[in-house]
Amino acid sequence: MKVVECKELTKRYGKAKAINNLSFELTENKITGLIGRNGAGKTTLLKMIAGYLHHTSGDIQVFSENPFNNLKVSANSIFIDNGMSFSPSLTLEELLETSGEFYPNWDQRLAKRLFDYFSFNPLQSHVNLSKGMKSTFNMIIGLAARCPLTIFDEPTSGMDAGTRKDFYRALLKDYIAHPRTIILSSHLLSEVEDILEEILLIKNGEKLLHMPIEILKEYSIGISGKATAVSEWTSNKETIFTQSIGVDGSYVVIKNDCSLRDLEIARDIGLEVSSVSAEDVCTYLTSKTKEGIDHVFN
């Protein structure tokens, strides 16, 4: 079953398009990573899915309904980011209780145990928390709510390394026990890639790719060697990234659609073939130019 379905979705702010002609579908019970650089439109897209923003054109459906201002979508989804606003009049403990009232699948035991594990003071107010603690608290709500559609927008911002690890582990364990559709946005793929099933990569509001994460890892290969040989071998291939190394060396990342035979030829003419990590693929795909930051210094 499709949980989220976008068709030619566009969101315009004045003349600028935050989301441009985006089409994709998210099916049930998968963890999808929404990856893109800062300003790629991740938050805008997630807020449209959560029903916070309306779209300019195209179509967006969540649980087969238009999410904007939609009670059904609101009741079955939760949007966690560090802009979540909680009243300072309520203690953290009361906030957890209140969440429990709103979300039917709420697991108070899990919430309480996470709360204690991260050593929160039940009588504190949300405004007094540090950025990292806020993120951690919001994350507890996101996990314990167990909404059929759970959206985390940059959930780990401000968290220390240990807490991040704990969070992803907690997310995975709870997901295994209670499968649900989870969207996780991040600009750091390496941190989340292991727990993702699918990746949706966007750049300037447009979809670059949407595929299972394992396929992304075989999406491209890196070729390095003498610049002339590399450029000759890659001349009829789709290059994603190029970098010159040393005096006459170069490293080129190409889309992996070559046959084994091709690769053997490359080896035989002294080129080195390597795999490219998903993180690097994403960086290359989303970079402004094919040369990356080096372009600036040339």
């Binding site: 079953m1 949980v3 049930e28 019970n29 649980f63 009670l71 059904k72 009741a75 079955n76 009243s87 009049s89 309520l90 009361e94 209140t98 009232e101 709103f102 039917p104 699948n105 059929p148 649900r180 559709t181």
Partner: peptide
Amino acid sequence: MSLTDVTTWEITKKQYRYKLK
């Protein structure tokens, strides 16, 4: 995936109680 059905009035009551606090 089982979706919850809620009514406007039911949630209004909850929101109202939350806002009082």
